[in-house]
Write a protein that binds this DNA or RNA. Structure first.
Lengths: 300, 300
DNA sequence: TATTTCCGATAGGAAAAAACTATAGTTCGT
DNA sequence: ACGAACTATAGTTTTTTCCTATCGGAAATA
């Protein structure tokens, strides 16, 4: 049962004539007759009674007509939709975000985006970098928002912005009194870090190691709010991304920049190098860039 | 957009691989790849992202997948239905019947038939012979139940049964006293006939003319119940088919057979000579024959 | 009734489409 | 870096579809 056979069939049913149907379908009458006969033999049913000059549907033909018109209508609809889809921002958009970015950057970005493009359905996946990169490689998500570095030849990395990490400590901490805090001053401090799964945990640790001291780790937590709570409770200090600092409305913590060397992280969009880019993807990335540029320091 | 392209497309989407899809579809991998590419160019959209070893749907592909599976499911369904239809008594059955037969023969026949074959939908058309024959020729009805003679080379005529016409008169009529009524006795009577449109009207008139007398027509009515009422009211006599006589529960009319020559009419099924016969048609005709044979005199 | 017209089916050959084999060019895991 | 796995390309063959010409039957016309 082929599509053109259904087209010919409907044409005959509607015109009541093989000749007129052939004309309408821009084929010769014998070609059309053959295709109808082929369809009939495939279905094991006569579809038309050839009553001399007139051609009428058999009962089987009437049954087929309903389905045939439905099928052709669906085909037409999907073809139209596909043509529209070329330039329309629509469809599903699967985004992966790391947990130390998700709650600060995404809600407002998604709200803005959906207001502008209500035809898009966003599927959000929050997970650690490793998982997100695997998902991007596997094609399970359209794009991942993670922190650099990302080293995978299969992925295309596009930096969005760089934000500083702030030294966070409890209100009344000895370092909080100083105007300028140097890295050296942190040697004696106990650090509260995220678990090794989270890139931010490792970033802070490796930042310290690069400056040649091994941070004393008081505790490794699974999520940033817990880290902040522990800091407020006086259990230690940490380096906190600016977007988290700005979201922090509590008076129990204070933030200081490091005077001598500024730790920072760069947030980037990552997608599969071979993945086709839909208008929705393009627009969303553009929005993220704009949003990053507004409040933070963009970086090439 | 061809059916096999949709089949290939769904196979790739489900297996996540061109090679495995080709295997499933029993074609070579290059053939399948080409058809997918052809489909993509026809729709103006990439359907899959070829991510090295893995193949995943694009957004457009996801959209198409929904429609494609729906279309293929409908195709499969209709093919199954068509195969069943070969031997199943089902579908629509358009029947035409003349008014002097319809109310007596059809209700019980249809009820019996539908109880046996509930999958059939019967469309009843009640009209005079001329119209019914035209409808049969045009293929608008599957079969017509009319009275003979029918002279049209395009139609196939199958007699069902022959039934006598009874002389009907008002209770207390002078002829009602006689045991045997002869044709000769009718010369003086006034006849109540159906209009010329109805075959029965002409049949009675021509029956008389064949016996070489012109009936005196008191009135020509549009339907048989009216004729019966007028007879009861003493306005005249008529010749009434046996099936109408048997349906007559009134005491105000009496019926007599004609002694010398028995007028009769033969009821037949008529259908287009070239029309394909469905199981439903075959079964319905068989039922009519059986029904006719039970109560009346079948005729070859 | 004979004739013309209309229309679908058939026959045979041409064109188009889809299939295959072989192989090139990637990607990706070891 | 090598080899296995996979898709794309090239060139050819097979299958399918389409066309022209014509037949044959049915219906309208003369």
């Amino acid at each position: 049962m082929e599509m053109h056979q259904l087209r010919y069939f409907v044409a005959v049913a509607e015109t009541g004539s093989f000749s007129r149907a052939a004309e309408r379908c821009h084929v010769s009458q014998p070609s059309l007759s053959q295709q109808i006969m082929k369809l009939e033999s495939r279905l094991g049913q006569r579809l038309f009674d050839r009553l001399g000059r007139r051609v009428v549907l058999t009962d089987a033909g009437r049954l087929l007509l309903d389905h045939a018109t439905a099928i052709l209508a669906e085909v037409e609809q999907v073809e139209r939709q596909m043509r529209d889809a070329t330039h329309t921002v629509q469809g599903k958009l699967a985004i992966g975000v790391i947990p130390t970015v998700a709650p600060y950057l995404l809600p407002s970005a998604i709200e803005l985006f959906l207001r502008r493009y209500p035809e898009v359905e966003i599927l959000l996946q929050e997970d650690v970098t490793h998982q997100l990169l695997a998902a991007a490689v596997a094609g399970e998500i359209d794009l991942a928002i993670v922190a650099l570095p990302v080293a995978d030849a299969r992925l295309r990395v596009e930096p969005l912005f760089t934000e500083p990490l702030w030294l966070a400590m409890p209100r009344g901490h000895r370092l909080a009194r100083r105007k300028r805090v140097r890295l050296e001053d942190l040697r004696a401090e106990r650090f509260i870090l995220l678990s090794e799964m989270h890139c931010l945990g490792e970033q802070v640790a490796s930042f310290c190691r690069q400056r040649e001291f091994e941070p004393k780790v008081a505790c490794r937590s699974a999520q940033l709010p817990t880290v902040l709570s522990l800091i407020a409770a006086g259990q230690g200090i940490s380096l906190i991304p600016e977007m988290a600092k700005e979201g922090d409305r509590s008076k129990r913590r204070v933030y200081r920049a490091l005077a001598d060397s500024t730790p920072a992280r760069t947030i980037a969009v990552v997608r599969h190098r071979l993945r086709h880019q839909t208008p929705a993807m393009r627009q969303f990335i553009q929005l993220l860039k704009k949003k990053g540029g507004e409040t933070r320091h963009p970086q090439p």
